[in-house]
């Protein structure tokens, strides 16, 4: 469904960021992209959702080219991107408001989502009153509210403590199992990539290119974090990443 063909991007004057990136994401799949900080992962994400235009190559979703404001793609940014002047409820309903949904309907939908994500009773708090994990949940709720065809996440858990991060990883996996919205996760965490990606792409180099691809057949099984297959894949991934940079 998501098809990426030889994307290239450089910033003026001529700093090449991404070179010839190609991959695909099927409708029942999830994809994790790992790479070191500052290798152009965020640029890639912006290209995927149409906030940036590539120098060459193309991105299509179900055969149609993506452009800015494509509402079939929801994006969760690194530091959540919640508006400080909107409450949790208003932030969640923001995408629906922009779509022109009526006040009562979007309020109801947002409230239901927040409750589903364990934020019942926090609807009227501003982001500054919420913990990092709670803010991240609001950002997830805001993305889900749009009922997107594709979810893009940019290092969504990087600033959370270990326990909160695991909880939210479970939440993302649970949500995927329930809704089957394919997602693309950008991360620098090896375990995170193995836990959340059906397939894993290793990005690296200057300019960044796809260096390796891993299949993750154990993805989604119960207690995956405790299993031998999980450790083995994480080892393999670590080795591949060490070899690349």
């Amino acid at each position: 469904m998501l098809q990426v063909d030889s994307l290239t991007k450089s910033y003026p004057p001529d700093v090449a960021i991404l070179k010839d990136i190609s991959f695909a994401l099927a409708a029942d799949e999830t994809l994790a992209i790992v790479g070191p900080s500052g290798c152009g992962k965020t640029t890639l994400l912006y290209l995927l959702c149409g906030l940036l235009r590539p120098d060459s190559g193309r991105v299509t979703l179900n055969g149609a080219a993506v452009g800015a404001g494509v509402q079939d793609i929801a994006i969760i940014l690194q530091d959540y991107g919640l508006l400080p002047w909107r409450t949790a409820l208003e932030n969640t309903a923001l995408g629906l408001k922009i779509r022109g949904l009526g006040a009562a309907a979007r309020r109801e939908q947002a409230q239901r989502l927040l409750r589903e994500l364990g934020l019942g009773g926090r609807e009227h708090h501003y982001p500054s009153q919420l913990s990092g994990g709670e803010q991240q949940r609001v950002a997830i709720a805001r993305a889900l509210a749009l009922e997107p065809k594709l979810l893009l996440m940019d290092e969504p858990f990087s600033s959370l403590d270990a326990l909160t991060r695991e909880k939210l990883q479970n939440l993302v996996l649970g949500t995927w199992k329930q809704r089957r919205i394919p997602y693309l996760l950008i991360t620098h965490g090896i375990e995170e990539a193995v836990f959340l990606g059906r397939r894993i792409l290793v990005l690296g180099g200057q300019p960044a290119a796809v260096l390796a691809t891993f299949d993750n057949p154990g993805f989604g099984c119960a207690d995956y974090r405790e299993r031998q297959a999980f450790f083995e894949l994480a080892q393999a991934l670590r080795a591949a990443m060490n070899a690349c940079w």
């Binding site: 929801a74 940014l77 995408g95």
Partner: peptide, 15 residues
């Protein structure tokens, strides 16, 4: 990031 996140939701200039 505020502008990006709202743009990614499909906001037009007025929004």
């Amino acid at each position: 990031k505020y502008l990006d996140s709202v743009r990614s939701l499909g906001a037009n200039r007025r929004q």
